Computed example of a mutant assay.
Amino acid sequence: MTFLLLVLAIASEVTATVSLKLSEGFTKLVPSIIVVAGYGGAFFFLSQTLKRGMSIGVAYGVWSAIGVAAVATIGALFLDESLTAVQMGGIVLVIVGVLALELGAAH
């Protein structure tokens, strides 16, 4: 259940972030509403994840790493944004750092 809540937090945050781009500075109503609801949902689900005992470093690390990778991928695939080899390498490093946090928490 804890990881499901974390997945919901990540999905909400990614949806809100993509909608932020689509809102064009909050000039478009529907994407703007999705931004507010998405970030609200993201923090609610993250708080529930923490309430159930996941460590904050691991929860936030996983949330941010998957969020960064997902938003960068969505931007490249659907929003006509670039994703260079250096950027992809940076994403890999973030994910490796999160894995190090997770493995370190297991001891």
Rank of each mutant, 00 (worst) to 15 (best):
M1T: 12
M1N: 05
F3M: 11
L8P: 05
A9R: 08
A9K: 11
I10F: 04
I10R: 04
A11R: 07
A11G: 05
S12D: 02
S12G: 12
E13L: 00
V14T: 14
V14P: 12
T15K: 03
T15M: 13
T15F: 07
T15C: 11
A16E: 10
A16N: 13
A16Y: 12
V18P: 04
V18K: 03
L20R: 08
K21V: 14
K21D: 12
E24I: 01
E24V: 02
E24L: 08
G25I: 15
G25F: 14
G25D: 11
F26A: 12
F26T: 07
T27W: 09
T27R: 15
K28D: 01
L29F: 15
V30Q: 09
V30W: 14
V30K: 09
S32K: 01
I33R: 08
I34N: 05
I34W: 07
V35H: 09
V36M: 13
A37W: 03
A37V: 13
G38L: 06
Y39H: 06
Y39A: 08
G40R: 03
G41E: 12
G41L: 09
G41A: 12
G41H: 04
A42L: 06
F43S: 07
F43D: 04
F43V: 14
F45W: 14
F45G: 03
L46Y: 03
L46W: 02
S47D: 12
S47T: 14
T49R: 07
T49D: 09
L50M: 04
L50Q: 02
L50G: 04
K51I: 13
G53E: 14
G53S: 14
M54T: 08
S55G: 15
I56R: 03
I56T: 10
G57R: 05
G57H: 10
A59W: 13
G61L: 07
G61R: 02
G61C: 08
V62G: 09
W63C: 06
W63T: 05
S64F: 05
A65Q: 04
A65D: 05
I66R: 00
I66V: 15
G67Q: 00
V68P: 02
A69G: 05
A70Y: 06
V71P: 03
V71W: 05
A72Y: 01
A72W: 00
T73I: 14
T73R: 09
I74K: 03
I74P: 01
I74H: 02
G75F: 02
A76Q: 02
L77E: 03
L77Y: 04
F78T: 10
F78N: 05
F78G: 11
L79N: 03
D80I: 03
D80Q: 11
D80R: 11
S82E: 11
S82I: 01
L83V: 01
L83I: 02
L83N: 00
T84E: 01
A85L: 15
V86M: 10
Q87K: 15
Q87N: 00
M88W: 08
G89W: 05
G89D: 03
G89R: 06
G90E: 09
G90H: 08
I91E: 00
V92H: 09
V92K: 09
I95N: 01
V96D: 01
V96N: 01
G97R: 07
V98D: 13
L99K: 02
L99M: 12
L101R: 02
E102H: 10
E102L: 15
L103K: 02
L103P: 00
L103R: 07
G104T: 05
G104F: 11
A105Y: 05
A106K: 14
